[in-house]
């Protein structure tokens, strides 16, 4: 059996919305969303951990819901909305979650951070004032080896206040 060169394996094509932008991409049909994001689209913010659905490092939002992108086939994403950590900030400004994570030292090595940020965003979109236990629950699928989680909880709580403060200055 001969193996085709990698470029000619790109026989699938989809159009989807990546971080708010219409995006067309060609890729080999067996690829996961994680691989297409990182390898074909150069969006390396989403991290590659176990590739087995165990660690949570690869989480992105698919139509607003956190999914493990290592378990999603890219061909299934046609026409859907994908949000990665690259799309969190707006107009060159950090998202309040990113701001709070940086302020409060909620990362050590940072490998888990992009996935925890998007997972926390999904939580706050759905429940703008979560309790500590709801935060624990929401990120329980994201392993973090370094921080012991406590500063992550605190940063999510701080982001809640930041978002509330932003809203009150806008209105």
């Amino acid at each position: 059996m001969t193996t085709l060169p990698i470029e000619s394996q790109k026989t699938s094509q989809i159009r989807f919305t990546l971080n708010g932008e219409e995006t067309d991409v060609c890729f080999a049909p067996y690829k996961t969303l994680l691989e297409v994001l990182r390898e074909d689209l150069g969006h390396t913010g989403t991290k590659h951990g176990c590739e087995l659905g165990e660690c949570g490092a690869c989480a992105v939002l698919l139509d607003g819901k956190p999914v493990l992108s290592c378990l999603v086939l890219a061909v299934d994403c046609s026409g859907r909305q994908v949000l990665t950590v690259e799309g969190l900030g707006e107009d060159g400004n950090l998202h309040p979650l990113q701001d709070a994570f940086a302020d409060l030292g909620a990362a050590q090595c940072g490998y888990c951070t992009p996935a925890i940020l998007v997972t926390a965003k999904a939580l706050l979109d759905q429940n703008p004032h979560p309790s500590r236990d709801q935060i624990r629950e929401a990120i329980s699928g994201n392993l973090c080896r370094c921080t012991g989680y406590l500063q992550i909880f605190e940063a999510v709580e701080a982001a809640v206040l930041k978002i509330a403060a932003q809203k009150s200055t806008v209105t």
């Binding site: 624990r136 329980s140 080896r145 989680y149």
Partner: peptide, 13 residues
């Protein structure tokens, strides 16, 4: 694999 080699999650901390 970390399915069997378990580490604490945010719920265990």
């Amino acid at each position: 694999s970390i399915l069997e080699y378990k580490s604490p999650t945010s719920l265990d901390m």
